[in-house]
Structure formats: C-alpha cells, structure tokens
Design a protein around this nucleic acid. Structure first.
Length: 264
DNA sequence: ATGGTGGGTAGCCCA
C-alpha cells in the first residue's frame, strides 16, 4: 500500500503550519506540492524531514510557481521538464521504488493562463496551450507506469464546475483548453483517478476562489487539481479522497489536498 | 458589468 497526495499550497513558507497539520492527520507516504513560491534553499526542508518526509525533490523559483515532492519512502529525482521553455519551475519528476521499478511520479503546475481565453490578445493563454501541447508530445513517449498529479488549472467536465453555463467562457473551463487537455489524455490513455472514484456527474471541486465572501455558502468551486495514471496503475488505486475541510483551516490555500491510495 | 482576495516582491506581477 502506498498513498500519494497533491496540494497547491500557495506559498509553502506562509502555510507550513497547515502542511504540517495535513501530514500529521493524513500521513500520506508522498506529498506533491505546487506553488511553493520559494527557491529551493528557502524550502522548509528540515521541518518536513522532522515529520518523516526526509526524501525531497524541490524545483523552486524566486517568488513564483515552484513545485516540490516530499516522501517518507525513498524517491529519486529523474526530471525537471520546462514545457513552456521559459525557465519557470513547474515540474519535478521522481521515481518511487528503485531504479527501473515501481512507478514514476510527475508533479506538475500548469500555467493558469491569464483572464482572456484568446492567445492573440493574451500571451499567457497561448503559453498555457503551448505548455499542454509540449506535455502531450512528452506523454506520447511515456512507457512506464506513471502517475501525473498537480494543479492542471483546467476543469474539463461540466460537473467539474459550479456552473458550466457561467464558466464556459472563463479561463479554466473553455472548450479550447478542455480539448487540449483531452489530447494530452489521449496521448497516453491516462485514467482520471479522481473521476474513477467520484464519478461524473457527482460534485467534485478542489478549488474555491479567495474572492468569494463565503466559499462554503456559495460553493462556487472548480476541479482544477488532478491525479491521472497509466491504465495499469490506475487499476491498482483502491481509494481516492479529498480533504475539503482544509479549505476552512486557518490561513488556507485556495486549493485542497487530494489523496489516492494504491495497492501495489 | 464589475470587482472582489491573497502571496511575494519591490516600487507590480501573478493567481
């Protein structure tokens, strides 16, 4: 049995207390963080090691983005892809279970893409689409049991958002992005673990805006965070759950943690 | 139709 979690933490230094709370309460074997918003040398390595997460792969950047994978079981960092070709720290890949064995775990933070879903007026939206296209070409060549997790910044299904009609022109849920994500999905035949366990059209959100007066009352959520796996690996996932309560913790991230357990 | 909040940084960018 191995459990793996993913969480866009929106500054790991500011939110170290809730990361520690999550690790103590949920105790996943591996935690993938996105938006750590710090350089590797500023990462709270010691605090997390003291909780048992002594194996760490950090791809940091000053002020923005940044991802980190911390683990209680040995991991080996094997890749840091730059699918935007602009130097931003949005990926770290590790191997779990020894060289050539076990699984590959890819931790990714897809660009948000700005406000306007049109690359001719909004370069950031173009960068998001380009990132997805490069990631798709990479996925074509994936030939080992792989789990890719993180903040994809896309809610592909109608049931992944609080209102399909009101969000269909809003970046994160536009057809052009959902189609790009579908091409990525088809490139390797990824299984959407989240939706295998919490099936469409059940409510499933992982993010609620800070801008809402009361995130819980309005419940205007979106499923932006995902855990997708190679088919054989997905078949070994026994449980998948969310810590929605973490959105209500003190000084919360706007995202919640997702956890999947595998029987390997 | 608009602006709402939050983090990091440095005299705004990003989400």
């Amino acid at each position: 049995m191995i459990s793996i979690a993913t969480w866009n933490i929106n500054s790991v230094r500011l939110r170290l207390p809730i990361v520690e709370r999550f690790l103590k309460e949920e105790a996943p074997d591996v935690l993938c963080l996105q938006e750590i918003k710090c350089q590797a040398e500023q990462f709270p390595a010691k605090a997390l090691a003291e909780l048992g997460y002594v194996h760490q792969a950090v791809h940091g950047q000053k002020g923005y983005h940044g991802v980190a994978t911390v683990s209680r079981v040995p991991i080996t960092q094997i890749a840091r892809h730059d699918w935007q070709a602009n130097g931003e720290a949005r990926h770290v890949g590790v191997e779990i279970g020894g060289p050539g064995k076990g699984m590959i775990l890819e931790n990714v933070y897809v660009p948000a893409g700005g406000d306007e879903p049109d690359r001719t007026v909004n370069p950031k939206f173009g960068q998001k689409l380009d990132f997805l296209e490069r990631m798709t070409r990479w996925a074509d060549a994936v030939d080992r049991p792989t789990l890719i997790v993180g903040d994809f910044n896309i809610a592909p299904l109608e049931s992944d958002v609080w209102s399909h009609k009101q969000l269909v022109k809003v970046v994160s849920h536009t057809p052009i992005e959902c189609e790009a994500l579908q091409r990525f999905k088809d490139a390797h035949g990824w299984a959407d673990i989240g939706r295998e366990h919490i099936r469409d059209p059940q409510r499933y959100y992982s993010w609620w805006s800070y801008r809402a007066k009361d995130w819980q009352a309005n419940d205007r959520g979106r499923r932006l965070d995902h855990m997708w796996a190679s088919a054989d690996l997905a078949a070994q996932s026994t449980r998948h759950w969310l810590r929605e309560d973490a959105r209500g913790w003190e000084k919360p991230s706007d995202h919640i943690p997702l956890i999947t357990a595998f029987d390997l």
